[in-house]
Design a protein around this nucleic acid. Structure first.
Lengths: 195, 195
DNA sequence: CTTACTATGGAGCATAGTACTCCATAAATA
DNA sequence: TATTTATGGAGTACTATGCTCCATAGTAAG
């Protein structure tokens, strides 16, 4: 059984350059390591070693490995969510979804590791949370289907779709794959809630 | 880093009653324990203790905890897949999807633990694998969208949908929730591949 | 510049989980 | 009955986590 989490990270909000540098080093070290092996095979000691930072110091910033992953993922997800929202309520949905695929395709190394690095479930939860925050008010509550399930299906559908696309040996062009995304993931939910 | 897996489980196929009994005890113990806490907080020692079985014996049957979870999940998923397939190619899709929700609703304790017990990702992979095996041949390869993404979206959509439904405090009736399932998960893929 | 503050580094320790071995014993099959 | 074999139990090695103590070095305020 995993040991209990008893402590809280210090320095919740800080401007000390040492703090900022330490956190940046930890985040970068995680991104570097996750290129080589799945997340569950990366120990905190490894991360701190790669970052050139003391083992204890890790816990002064993050409660555990998951917290660090979430911090990294949240930053990256923010941009994805923006594009996702745009796609959901754009008049020109085709163009918006192409823009989304373009963005992910241009940051493919990062997103491949995020989507296939074993952090899938953390990413899923965070994606749902962020999408709920930003999209809930835009979705018609008068629909027969509850809002929550629409949000969730868009979130997991988007992640599954992007993960599938990025792991293709020969990737379809963004404009082409965006059509599939739109048809299978976006349109069903848009039709159900926004009409 | 988690230690390497160097060994293979013995007794791959066996009819010895001792083997069958040991495996059944391990599976039941896992199902019992997963009622109380998430999977990642359950150790192998705990499982073997609950099953009344020696710690070593575990490794004679399964390589690790994941292998046991997969063995249990596969058994349960078999039934779900059958209903899922039926829904996908039934003429009366509404009735078939209601039957699927009925089944899950009647085994809600089991499925709630499977869908929210932290085994989500393992379940997802196994669901996709089984659905691919059984559904691939039925899906039209002439479609513009690759078959694989359709299978994946149905799989993760179904799991997400069922997980959402089962964790509602006051659950909608199966017949009612099946309509939402059909509209948001099944129909989009069926329309894209089977028409 | 000096002083207080505080983030970091490093060593070390307790707990816990995994992977594995050896051997005696009990159960199954022939 | 004799042989095969699955199991139980004790024990070892290794690894990861959570945490403490204390000296040091970087930061910011006077």
């Amino acid at each position: 059984m995993a040991r209990k989490k008893l402590h809280q990270p210090h320095y919740a909000t800080a401007t000390d350059p040492r703090i900022l540098q330490t956190r940046q080093a930890l985040r970068q070290a995680l991104l570097d390591l996750v290129d080589d092996k799945p997340l569950d095979q990366i120990s905190i000691r490894e991360i701190t070693a790669a970052a050139g930072i003391g083992y204890n110091t890790f816990f002064r910033h993050y409660t555990d490995k998951e917290a660090l992953v979430m911090a990294v993922a949240t930053d990256e997800l923010e941009r994805l969510i923006e594009l996702c929202i745009t796609t959901l309520d754009a008049t020109d949905s085709a163009r918006a979804s192409t823009a989304l695929c373009d963005y992910v395709g241009e940051h493919d190394v990062l997103w491949s590791t995020l989507l296939t690095g074993g952090a899938t479930n953390l990413l899923r939860e965070e994606f749902i949370r962020l999408l709920r925050e930003r999209a809930a008010s835009r979705i018609s509550a008068t629909s027969t289907s509850p809002v929550e399930i629409g949000i969730r299906l868009v979130a997991v559908g988007t992640l599954e779709f992007l993960g599938w696309w990025l792991e293709q040996p020969r990737r379809m062009p963004a404009a082409e794959v965006a059509k599939i995304y739109e048809r299978l993931v976006v349109t069903p939910v848009v039709d159900a809630y926004m009409k």
